[in-house]
């Protein structure tokens, strides 16, 4: 195999691209990993999904969160600053009326709450809200 200048350059840029790809997961947060595990790397758009969260939560132990996504079959909540980013998954059955739900969650520090909805056509939608936490809800 004779190495021309052009071939050497092609090999070089190929390995460089590979190196930068493998370097990525170290910087991605746990929440991003959890979200891509859910979606399988599919594109996530904005849309009809809406997330209701307080701007400031005085007590991180009980933060009221509401989520509403018409046409969703499943909604998953994430908190990107918690030790475990997954919060809850709502699966809606045939008798569910509005594809919405409210609950109360724990937030450790000030962070983003993320809702990812799986729609009926298999696409994904995401909504994000920042909640400032005065007293963290992780105990310890």
């Amino acid at each position: 195999m004779d190495l021309t200048r052009r071939k050497v350059l092609a090999i070089g840029s190929g390995t460089l691209a590979f190196a930068s790809l493998t370097g990525l997961p170290a910087y991605a947060s746990l929440a991003d990993e959890a979200i891509s595990a859910l979606t399988g790397g599919a594109n996530i758009g904005d849309g009809v999904i809406s997330l209701t969260a307080p701007e400031i939560a005085e007590n991180g132990n009980t933060v009221p969160i509401g989520v509403d996504a018409p046409g969703a079959t499943q909604i998953t909540l994430f908190a990107d600053g918690n030790p475990v980013p997954n919060v809850a998954t709502f699966n809606f059955g045939p008798l569910s009326a509005s594809r919405s739900a409210s609950t109360r969650i724990r937030l450790a520090p000030t962070q983003n709450v993320i809702a990812v909805a799986k729609m009926e056509d298999g696409s994904f939608q995401m909504a994000k809200a920042e909640v400032k936490v005065t007293i963290g809800g992780c105990g310890g």
Partner: peptide
């Protein structure tokens, strides 16, 4: 939550759900 054997909502809870878990949701009653 089920109504006459048909599912309304099925929630998976993680440790980030608060003490005394509370849920509010809507259902259709045929």
């Amino acid at each position: 939550a089920d109504f006459n054997g048909q599912n309304v909502i099925d929630v998976t809870l993680e440790p980030a759900i608060s003490t005394n878990p509370f849920f509010e949701f809507e259902a259709v009653v045929p």
